[in-house]
Design a protein around this nucleic acid. Structure first.
Length: 272
DNA sequence: CGGCATGTTGCGCA
DNA sequence: TTGCGCAACATGCC
Protein backbone atom coordinates (compact mmCIF):
# COMPACT_ATOMS: atom_id res chain seq x y z
CA UNK A 1 0.00 0.00 0.00
CA UNK A 2 2.89 2.34 0.17
CA UNK A 3 3.93 5.71 -1.13
CA UNK A 4 4.73 8.67 1.06
CA UNK A 5 1.13 9.41 2.17
CA UNK A 6 0.33 5.80 3.03
CA UNK A 7 3.63 5.36 4.86
CA UNK A 8 2.93 8.56 6.79
CA UNK A 9 -0.40 7.09 7.94
CA UNK A 10 1.33 3.82 8.88
CA UNK A 11 4.01 5.77 10.73
CA UNK A 12 1.47 7.64 12.84
CA UNK A 13 -0.13 4.34 13.80
CA UNK A 14 3.22 2.82 14.75
CA UNK A 15 4.01 5.90 16.81
CA UNK A 16 0.78 5.46 18.77
CA UNK A 17 1.31 1.73 19.24
CA UNK A 18 5.05 1.54 19.83
CA UNK A 19 6.56 4.81 21.01
CA UNK A 20 7.80 4.67 24.60
CA UNK A 21 7.12 0.95 24.88
CA UNK A 22 9.39 -1.96 25.74
CA UNK A 23 9.67 -4.94 23.42
CA UNK A 24 8.95 -7.89 25.67
CA UNK A 25 9.31 -10.36 22.85
CA UNK A 26 9.96 -10.21 19.13
CA UNK A 27 9.35 -13.02 16.65
CA UNK A 28 10.42 -13.43 13.04
CA UNK A 29 7.85 -15.73 11.46
CA UNK A 30 9.39 -15.70 7.98
CA UNK A 31 13.12 -14.97 7.75
CA UNK A 32 12.83 -14.17 4.03
CA UNK A 33 11.77 -10.65 5.08
CA UNK A 34 15.26 -10.11 6.54
CA UNK A 35 18.32 -9.23 4.52
CA UNK A 36 20.17 -12.15 2.94
CA UNK A 37 22.25 -13.99 5.52
CA UNK A 38 20.64 -12.40 8.61
CA UNK A 39 19.23 -15.01 10.97
CA UNK A 40 15.87 -14.75 12.69
CA UNK A 41 17.41 -15.66 16.03
CA UNK A 42 19.91 -12.80 15.87
CA UNK A 43 17.13 -10.30 15.16
CA UNK A 44 14.95 -11.68 17.94
CA UNK A 45 17.86 -11.48 20.37
CA UNK A 46 18.71 -7.91 19.42
CA UNK A 47 15.13 -6.71 19.87
CA UNK A 48 14.29 -8.44 23.15
CA UNK A 49 13.86 -6.02 26.07
CA UNK A 50 14.76 -2.99 23.95
CA UNK A 51 12.92 0.24 24.60
CA UNK A 52 11.40 2.01 21.57
CA UNK A 53 12.20 5.69 22.02
CA UNK A 54 10.66 7.12 18.86
CA UNK A 55 9.26 6.29 15.44
CA UNK A 56 9.95 8.42 12.40
CA UNK A 57 9.75 8.37 8.62
CA UNK A 58 11.69 9.54 5.61
CA UNK A 59 10.14 8.93 2.21
CA UNK A 60 8.85 5.36 2.17
CA UNK A 61 11.07 4.22 5.06
CA UNK A 62 10.14 4.11 8.71
CA UNK A 63 12.63 3.95 11.55
CA UNK A 64 12.22 2.80 15.14
CA UNK A 65 14.88 4.35 17.33
CA UNK A 66 15.66 1.96 20.19
CA UNK A 67 17.63 2.52 23.37
CA UNK A 68 20.23 0.38 21.62
CA UNK A 69 20.11 0.09 17.82
CA UNK A 70 17.47 0.89 15.25
CA UNK A 71 14.85 -0.88 13.16
CA UNK A 72 14.14 0.10 9.55
CA UNK A 73 10.87 -0.90 7.91
CA UNK A 74 10.06 -0.56 4.23
CA UNK A 75 6.62 -1.76 3.13
CA UNK A 76 7.59 -2.67 -0.43
CA UNK A 77 4.43 -3.07 -2.46
CA UNK A 78 2.18 -4.96 -0.06
CA UNK A 79 3.58 -4.56 3.45
CA UNK A 80 1.47 -3.31 6.34
CA UNK A 81 1.61 -3.00 10.10
CA UNK A 82 -1.42 -4.04 12.14
CA UNK A 83 -2.41 -4.16 15.75
CA UNK A 84 -3.37 -7.79 16.45
CA UNK A 85 -7.04 -8.04 17.44
CA UNK A 86 -6.21 -10.96 19.71
CA UNK A 87 -2.75 -11.32 21.23
CA UNK A 88 -2.23 -14.93 20.21
CA UNK A 89 -3.75 -15.09 16.76
CA UNK A 90 -1.47 -15.73 13.79
CA UNK A 91 -2.45 -13.48 10.92
CA UNK A 92 -2.24 -14.45 7.26
CA UNK A 93 1.04 -13.25 5.68
CA UNK A 94 2.48 -12.33 9.07
CA UNK A 95 6.27 -11.97 8.91
CA UNK A 96 7.30 -10.18 12.11
CA UNK A 97 5.68 -9.78 15.50
CA UNK A 98 6.49 -7.29 18.26
CA UNK A 99 4.90 -7.84 21.67
CA UNK A 100 5.29 -4.62 23.61
CA UNK A 101 4.31 -3.13 26.96
CA UNK A 102 3.79 0.43 28.12
CA UNK A 103 3.04 0.39 31.82
CA UNK A 104 0.22 -2.10 32.18
CA UNK A 105 -0.78 -1.84 28.52
CA UNK A 106 0.17 -4.83 26.37
CA UNK A 107 0.04 -4.85 22.59
CA UNK A 108 0.98 -7.24 19.82
CA UNK A 109 1.97 -5.44 16.65
CA UNK A 110 2.43 -7.41 13.44
CA UNK A 111 4.13 -6.84 10.11
CA UNK A 112 2.31 -8.51 7.20
CA UNK A 113 3.66 -8.77 3.67
CA UNK A 114 2.29 -11.29 1.16
CA UNK A 115 4.66 -10.38 -1.66
CA UNK A 116 7.74 -9.98 0.53
CA UNK A 117 8.95 -6.91 -1.34
CA UNK A 118 9.29 -5.08 1.96
CA UNK A 119 12.35 -4.98 4.20
CA UNK A 120 12.87 -5.30 7.93
CA UNK A 121 16.37 -4.32 9.01
CA UNK A 122 17.90 -4.16 12.48
CA UNK A 123 21.08 -2.13 12.66
CA UNK A 124 23.27 -0.26 15.15
CA UNK A 125 23.43 2.72 12.82
CA UNK A 126 21.36 4.38 10.13
CA UNK A 127 21.49 2.23 6.99
CA UNK A 128 22.54 3.59 3.56
CA UNK A 129 19.01 3.20 2.16
CA UNK A 130 17.96 5.72 4.83
CA UNK A 131 20.87 8.16 4.76
CA UNK A 132 20.98 8.33 0.97
CA UNK A 133 17.36 9.47 0.66
CA UNK A 134 16.70 12.86 -0.86
CA UNK A 135 14.52 15.48 0.87
CA UNK A 136 11.07 14.38 1.99
CA UNK A 137 8.50 16.65 0.29
CA UNK A 138 6.15 16.55 3.28
CA UNK A 139 8.58 17.14 6.14
CA UNK A 140 11.44 18.96 4.38
CA UNK A 141 9.56 20.63 1.55
CA UNK A 142 11.18 20.98 -1.87
CA UNK A 143 14.02 23.44 -2.44
CA UNK A 144 13.24 24.35 -6.06
CA UNK A 145 16.79 25.44 -6.88
CA UNK A 146 18.24 22.16 -5.61
CA UNK A 147 15.47 20.16 -7.30
CA UNK A 148 16.15 21.93 -10.61
CA UNK A 149 19.86 21.26 -10.20
CA UNK A 150 19.22 17.52 -9.87
CA UNK A 151 16.93 17.50 -12.91
CA UNK A 152 19.43 19.38 -15.03
CA UNK A 153 21.89 16.45 -14.84
CA UNK A 154 19.44 13.79 -15.93
CA UNK A 155 18.52 12.72 -19.44
CA UNK A 156 15.96 10.14 -18.32
CA UNK A 157 12.25 10.86 -18.72
CA UNK A 158 11.07 13.07 -15.86
CA UNK A 159 8.80 10.36 -14.51
CA UNK A 160 11.74 7.96 -14.12
CA UNK A 161 13.74 10.64 -12.30
CA UNK A 162 10.85 11.35 -9.92
CA UNK A 163 10.94 7.68 -8.89
CA UNK A 164 14.61 8.04 -7.89
CA UNK A 165 14.48 8.17 -4.09
CA UNK A 166 17.71 10.16 -3.85
CA UNK A 167 16.08 13.03 -5.78
CA UNK A 168 12.96 13.21 -3.61
CA UNK A 169 12.08 10.65 -0.96
CA UNK A 170 8.67 9.05 -1.09
CA UNK A 171 7.42 9.80 -4.60
CA UNK A 172 6.18 6.59 -6.24
CA UNK A 173 4.30 5.68 -9.38
CA UNK A 174 0.99 7.16 -8.24
CA UNK A 175 2.33 10.46 -6.91
CA UNK A 176 4.58 10.92 -9.95
CA UNK A 177 1.65 10.28 -12.30
CA UNK A 178 -0.66 12.64 -10.45
CA UNK A 179 1.89 15.42 -9.99
CA UNK A 180 2.91 15.41 -13.67
CA UNK A 181 -0.74 15.83 -14.58
CA UNK A 182 -1.24 18.69 -12.11
CA UNK A 183 1.86 20.44 -13.47
CA UNK A 184 0.94 19.82 -17.11
CA UNK A 185 4.23 18.05 -17.87
CA UNK A 186 4.57 15.13 -20.31
CA UNK A 187 6.02 12.20 -18.30
CA UNK A 188 8.34 11.33 -21.22
CA UNK A 189 10.10 14.68 -21.23
CA UNK A 190 13.84 14.36 -20.55
CA UNK A 191 14.28 15.81 -17.05
CA UNK A 192 16.93 18.29 -18.17
CA UNK A 193 14.62 19.75 -20.84
CA UNK A 194 11.98 20.98 -18.42
CA UNK A 195 11.90 24.78 -18.35
CA UNK A 196 12.29 26.53 -15.00
CA UNK A 197 8.63 27.61 -14.61
CA UNK A 198 7.56 24.00 -15.15
CA UNK A 199 10.08 22.78 -12.58
CA UNK A 200 8.55 25.17 -10.06
CA UNK A 201 5.06 24.03 -11.02
CA UNK A 202 6.15 20.40 -10.66
CA UNK A 203 7.59 20.94 -7.18
CA UNK A 204 4.31 22.52 -6.12
CA UNK A 205 2.29 19.77 -7.83
CA UNK A 206 4.18 17.04 -5.96
CA UNK A 207 3.42 18.67 -2.63
CA UNK A 208 -0.19 19.25 -3.61
CA UNK A 209 -0.70 15.66 -4.74
CA UNK A 210 0.83 14.26 -1.56
CA UNK A 211 -1.27 16.57 0.63
CA UNK A 212 -4.39 15.61 -1.29
CA UNK A 213 -3.77 11.87 -0.91
CA UNK A 214 -2.90 12.27 2.76
CA UNK A 215 -6.12 14.20 3.36
CA UNK A 216 -8.10 11.42 1.66
CA UNK A 217 -6.52 8.85 3.99
CA UNK A 218 -7.06 11.03 7.06
CA UNK A 219 -10.73 11.19 6.17
CA UNK A 220 -11.22 7.45 6.28
CA UNK A 221 -11.36 5.34 9.41
CA UNK A 222 -9.70 1.97 9.67
CA UNK A 223 -7.25 0.42 7.28
CA UNK A 224 -6.41 1.97 3.96
CA UNK A 225 -7.65 0.34 0.77
CA UNK A 226 -5.02 -2.09 -0.41
CA UNK A 227 -5.51 -1.91 -4.10
CA UNK A 228 -6.65 0.90 -6.34
CA UNK A 229 -9.34 -0.51 -8.51
CA UNK A 230 -10.51 1.17 -11.67
CA UNK A 231 -13.90 1.82 -10.16
CA UNK A 232 -15.52 4.63 -8.27
CA UNK A 233 -13.39 4.03 -5.17
CA UNK A 234 -10.23 5.15 -6.98
CA UNK A 235 -9.36 8.38 -5.13
CA UNK A 236 -6.87 9.61 -7.74
CA UNK A 237 -7.39 12.14 -10.50
CA UNK A 238 -5.82 10.20 -13.41
CA UNK A 239 -3.91 7.25 -11.92
CA UNK A 240 -5.79 4.04 -12.79
CA UNK A 241 -8.00 5.90 -15.26
CA UNK A 242 -6.37 5.18 -18.62
CA UNK A 243 -8.95 5.48 -21.42
CA UNK A 244 -11.27 7.67 -19.37
CA UNK A 245 -11.86 11.29 -20.42
CA UNK A 246 -9.29 13.77 -19.10
CA UNK A 247 -10.85 15.65 -16.16
CA UNK A 248 -9.70 18.94 -17.70
CA UNK A 249 -10.20 18.61 -21.46
CA UNK A 250 -12.08 15.32 -21.96
CA UNK A 251 -9.46 13.84 -24.33
CA UNK A 252 -9.12 10.09 -23.66
CA UNK A 253 -6.27 9.59 -21.18
CA UNK A 254 -3.31 7.66 -22.64
CA UNK A 255 -1.67 4.74 -20.90
CA UNK A 256 1.90 3.74 -21.74
CA UNK A 257 4.76 1.86 -20.10
CA UNK A 258 7.58 4.11 -18.96
CA UNK A 259 10.59 2.99 -16.93
CA UNK A 260 8.77 -0.32 -16.61
CA UNK A 261 5.76 1.27 -14.91
CA UNK A 262 2.23 1.92 -16.06
CA UNK A 263 1.89 5.62 -16.84
CA UNK A 264 -1.32 7.53 -17.45
CA UNK A 265 -1.29 11.01 -18.94
CA UNK A 266 -3.23 13.43 -21.13
CA UNK A 267 -1.63 14.12 -24.52
CA UNK A 268 -3.48 17.43 -24.70
CA UNK A 269 -2.91 18.87 -21.22
CA UNK A 270 0.58 17.48 -20.63
CA UNK A 271 2.81 19.03 -23.29
CA UNK A 272 6.58 18.68 -23.56
C1' DC B 1 -4.89 -18.19 -18.84
C1' DG B 2 -2.33 -13.82 -19.40
C1' DG B 3 -1.42 -9.46 -17.89
C1' DC B 4 -0.96 -6.15 -14.48
C1' DA B 5 0.01 -4.35 -9.71
C1' DT B 6 1.37 1.91 -4.78
C1' DG B 7 8.92 -1.00 -5.15
C1' DT B 8 13.74 -1.92 -5.52
C1' DT B 9 17.88 -4.03 -7.26
C1' DG B 10 21.09 -6.30 -10.03
C1' DC B 11 22.46 -7.83 -14.55
C1' DG B 12 23.66 -7.41 -19.33
C1' DC B 13 24.33 -4.57 -23.11
C1' DA B 14 25.38 -0.32 -25.75
C1' DT C 1 32.50 4.41 -16.80
C1' DT C 2 27.78 5.59 -17.44
C1' DG C 3 23.22 5.07 -18.67
C1' DC C 4 19.45 2.41 -19.69
C1' DG C 5 15.91 -1.46 -20.29
C1' DC C 6 14.45 -5.43 -18.28
C1' DA C 7 13.99 -9.50 -15.41
C1' DA C 8 13.47 -11.00 -10.89
C1' DC C 9 11.54 -11.20 -6.33
C1' DA C 10 6.13 -13.69 -4.58
C1' DT C 11 1.33 -13.27 -4.63
C1' DG C 12 -3.33 -11.66 -5.75
C1' DC C 13 -6.78 -9.79 -8.70
C1' DC C 14 -9.38 -9.05 -12.93
Amino acid sequence: MPELPEVEIACRALRAWLEKTTIEKAAVIDARILDQGVSATSVVRRLAKRRILSVDRRGKWMRLVLDRGRVFSHLGMTGKWLLAPEPDSRLRFEKVRLDVTRGRTKRSVRYLDPRLFGRFVVSDEDIPAWTELGPDPLTDGIDVARFAERLRKRSLPIKAVLLDQTVLAGVGNIQATEALFFAGVDPRTPAQKIAQPKVTALARAIKRSIARTLAAHEGEEGPIAEYVSEGADNPFVIYGRGGDPCPKCKTALSKIMLAGRGTVFCRTCQGR
